[in-house]
Design a protein around this nucleic acid. Sequence first.
DNA 1: ACACTACTGCCATAAACTGACAGTGGTCAG
DNA 2: CTGACCACTGTCAGTTTATGGCAGTAGTGT
Lengths: 227, 227
Amino acid sequence: MARSERLLALLQTLRRYRRPVSGAVLATETGVSIRTLYRDISSLQAQGALIEGEPGLGYVLKPGFMLPPMMFSQDEIEALVLGSRWVARAADSRLAAAGADALAKIADVLPQEMRAEIETSTLLVHLKPPVADKADLGAIRKAIRSERILKLTYSDESGTVSVRNIWPFALSYFEQVRVVVAWCELRQDYRHFRTDRIVEMIPQDGRYPRRRAVLLKEWRDQQDVAH
Amino acid sequence: MARSERLLALLQTLRRYRRPVSGAVLATETGVSIRTLYRDISSLQAQGALIEGEPGLGYVLKPGFMLPPMMFSQDEIEALVLGSRWVARAADSRLAAAGADALAKIADVLPQEMRAEIETSTLLVHLKPPVADKADLGAIRKAIRSERILKLTYSDESGTVSVRNIWPFALSYFEQVRVVVAWCELRQDYRHFRTDRIVEMIPQDGRYPRRRAVLLKEWRDQQDVAH
DNA sequence: ACACTACTGCCATAAACTGACAGTGGTCAG
DNA sequence: CTGACCACTGTCAGTTTATGGCAGTAGTGT
């Protein structure tokens, strides 16, 4: 890759990572030596990019530096199309429609010749039809976004039905099924609930008392320890 | 001025003029010869800039080259994020990076308060790790886009190795594997090739003689009849 | 003390850039 | 039809730049 292309790619990479990235990683990703990477970084800084480097941490691109006005690349469009096709297949119909709408909005701002890419993209998705959800996934996503407590009637794998309040904070997509990740008031611990086993689900008025981002982090840490 | 800086400057200059500018003017302004200016323009075009040159007129940076501010509903953003997370999991690393890049570009043109949505989305994707590809998926996508013949060394399910020329026109994503859909010169029919069974793959110079959209349609019709 | 990191200077080699010239083909005005 | 103007391509040799490796300094957090 020529230097002039590489510098743009480097900016984009820095923007993609939001956390500090070490020079070694950036060098590998752009396919140059560390020495050259340092030169590239200082070139960009000389041209006005707000890149900060801290020893022991890595580089961060400070927000506010506008990239040169580049359009989506062909790869990027293909990634968006492929992603939205997967959503159309694997998610609920409301999210599928939202994906198609988003793609249409993107197509609107694309120049004519790139618009054709979206329509005739030759990346296809074939999946086994997912297990049908009993619960309304749209309502679950809404509860997660607004941090609402859900009163859940749930039938576990052995068929035993129980009722409990949960604090939903994530929705996880597996190949066949979807799973609500939540804090369970009954068990006082994190629990997973397959959406196809939810019998009934009533959003409560109350907001749950903790932030969903915090719950997500705590749950993740717990997962890491377990493995 | 170094080339890498000059290219950025050239973009800015083109944006400043709204009317067509002759190459001679641009060359003078950036301080290089005409010949180099032509090279610079084609470099920018290769990197995705939509610059049009008309004999007798000059160069114009096509409108629509920059991403305008866009609005998305919450559902649409979640669909985009979920889709790109799936791409990150299930596609090759290059497409995965492209998905993340596209998302970062979208985030940049989003109003401040929506930007956070992309970062804190609580939709997760869990998949069995896909089978590793032997072939370079990027090269396959490129061959499809440019309608290039591929010389394929392929090992079928029984382990028999064969060499043939194919006209690839689609890439299909299954749960564990990816499959190239192509017209096979050897069999004179449509054939599927799992990317993990491709032993070697050499792009040929020749373009195949039919349009990929036509092949796709014909293949689809054939599939429909079979079922 | 140690591991990890950013950063700088130096140098020989390899790669890229550059301008000049020659030539093609398109548009437009007279 | 002619000529002016322009985008664009190919070639080439001289020059500039870029590059990777090495050695070394200095800051950070464990």
